[in-house]
C-alpha cells in the first residue's frame, strides 16, 4: 500500500498502479495507452492526504477517480464516422469506445469491492453532469466566450471538485478550476497549431459570432491564458499552509508550462 504524502515518488507509484489497471493485452496493440493526467493525480492525492480516510480508501479514491477521468477522456477520442474510413480506422474507433466502457466498469468494480456505495454515487453523479456539460458546450448555442470558458472550466474540474466535496476538503477547488482550465486551453491551442484535431477550437470555429475567425480565436485564447496565469498564481499563493508541497508543485508547473512557453514563443 502506498502512503500518500504526495511526494514525487509516490505519484509515480500511483501512476504505475493506474497504468497497470487500464492495461489490456489486446487494446494495447491497437490503441494508445491512455494518458494519465499527472496534474489531476497530484491534486487528487493532495486532497486525499488531508483526509482521515484509511490508506486503502485514499488510494482507491485516487485510482477510481482517475479511472473515471481516463474513461471520459477516452470517449472524447472517438472519431466521427467517415465514408473513407478503412478497416484499421474503424477498429481503432471500435476499441476506443470499448476501452472507455471498460475503464468505467473498472471504477465501478473497484469501489464495489470496497462496499463504497456513496462514492459510486458521487462519481456517477459527476459523470452524468460532465456529459450534460459537454453536450451543452459542443452542441448548444452558448451566448458568449465567457459562457464557453465557464462550461469548459466545469468540465475540466467538476470530477475533482465533486470528490473534494465528498471528502469535505474543498480548499483547493478554486485553484484546481483555474489551473485545469488554463492547462486545457494551452493543450488545445498547441494541438490546433500542430495541425491536430482540437475539439474546443473546432467548436469555436463553428460559432464565429463568439470569437471571429480562427486567427482571432487563437489571439483571444492567448489573452485569456495570460490573464489566467496571473489569477492562478494568486490562487496558488493563497492555498492553506499545509498544502506546501502542492504549492511548490504548482509554482513549478506554472513556470514550466507558461513561462517556458513565453520564452519559446518570444525566442
Amino acid at each position: 500500500m502506498i502512503k500518500l504524502n504526495s511526494s514525487e515518488n509516490e505519484i509515480k507509484q500511483l501512476k504505475r498502479k493506474i497504468a497497470s489497471k487500464v492495461r489490456h493485452p489486446y487494446l494495447v496493440r491497437f490503441i494508445p495507452e491512455p494518458t494519465i493526467d499527472e496534474d489531476k493525480l497530484v491534486i487528487l492525492s493532495s486532497i486525499m492526504n488531508h483526509t482521515n480516510l484509511s490508506e486503502v480508501k485514499k488510494e482507491q479514491y485516487v485510482i477510481t477517480t482517475m479511472l473515471v477521468q481516463i474513461a471520459l477522456d477516452t470517449h472524447d477520442l472517438v472519431t466521427l464516422t467517415d465514408e473513407e474510413d478503412d478497416r484499421d480506422i474503424i477498429r481503432h474507433r471500435q476499441l476506443t469506445v470499448l476501452a472507455g466502457d471498460y475503464y468505467s466498469g473498472l471504477y465501478y468494480y473497484l469501489l464495489s469491492q470496497l462496499d463504497d456505495i456513496p462514492m459510486i454515487h458521487t462519481l456517477a453523479g459527476a459523470i452524468k453532469e460532465i456529459n450534460e456539460l459537454k453536450m451543452g458546450l459542443y452542441y448548444k448555442d452558448v451566448e458568449s466566450f465567457q459562457e464557453f470558458l465557464d462550461g469548459l472550466k466545469k468540465i475540466e474540474s467538476l470530477l475533482i471538485q465533486r470528490v473534494a466535496t465528498y471528502v469535505q476538503k474543498t480548499a483547493i477547488n478554486d485553484m484546481a478550476g483555474e489551473w485545469l482550465l488554463a492547462k486545457k486551453l494551452l493543450e488545445e491551442k498547441r494541438s490546433y497549431q500542430a495541425g491536430k484535431f482540437s475539439p474546443l477550437i473546432d467548436a469555436l470555429i463553428k460559432r464565429p459570432a463568439l470569437l471571429g475567425n480562427s486567427g482571432q480565436i487563437l489571439g483571444n485564447i492567448e489573452q485569456t491564458l495570460q490573464s489566467h496565469v496571473h489569477r492562478l498564481e494568486t490562487t496558488v499563493t493563497q492555498l492553506p499552509v499545509h498544502f506546501n508541497w502542492l504549492k511548490s508543485y504548482m509554482h513549478a508547473a506554472i513556470h514550466h508550462q507558461f513561462n517556458h512557453r513565453k520564452i519559446a514563443e518570444e525566442g
Partner: peptide, 19 residues
C-alpha cells in the same frame, strides 16, 4: 446526430443507471 453525441448519451445513461 453523430458518434460524439452517442458517446455522451451512452455515458450519461450509464451514470444515471449507477446513480
Amino acid at each position: 446526430w453523430d458518434n460524439r453525441i452517442a458517446m455522451y448519451t451512452g455515458d450519461y445513461i450509464f451514470a444515471r443507471s449507477l446513480e
